[in-house]
């Protein structure tokens, strides 16, 4: 399976890791590392799956998620959310905002890959 993934994340090493894992599986990976214009970038690139970090410079991942869910075009776009703040209230917030899948760092590579594949398929 393959498709187009947009990775929104600011930590360079994590970008490198996820980029490597997905490209090796045949995915085309675009990256973006800033929260402010993330929504515009999603619209412009129209990816199959979005991987979204919570703590981004300029704007929180939750806000971006909420914006995307309010837009009819991206309302059903599969979004995988990653966070390093593993508290339960973080997960609740993400689910309320309409996340498709939520994962806590650190993750195993296989987990990420499975999640992206499942999201693409749904």
């Amino acid at each position: 399976m393959s498709g187009h993934v947009l990775l929104i994340e600011d930590e360079p090493n994590i970008i490198e890791a996820i980029g490597f894992i997905l490209s090796r599986d045949g995915w085309r990976v675009d990256t973006h590392s800033n929260g402010v214009d993330a929504v515009d970038v999603v619209r412009a690139k129209a990816p199959d799956v979005v991987i979204l970090d919570v703590m981004l410079p300029g704007r929180s991942g939750y806000d971006i998620l909420r914006d995307l869910r309010n837009d009819p075009v991206t309302q059903t776009l599969p979004i995988l959310m990653l966070t390093a703040r593993g508290q339960s209230k973080d997960r609740e917030m993400a689910e309320r905002a309409g996340v498709s899948r939520f994962m806590t760092k650190p993750f195993s590579n296989a987990e990420v890959l499975d999640a992206v594949r499942a999201l693409k398929a749904s």
Binding site: E11, I14, A17, F20, R85, G86, Q87, K105, P106, N109
Partner: peptide, 26 residues
């Protein structure tokens, strides 16, 4: 503080885990 400390610990941990898996599996 709890969130922060979690974040500060997990971020490097994520890179370490991801790359060590890459080195192991690939």
């Amino acid at each position: 503080f709890l969130s922060q400390i979690s974040h500060e610990l997990r971020t490097p941990m994520t890179s370490i885990r991801a790359f060590s898996e890459i080195l192991r599996d690939a």
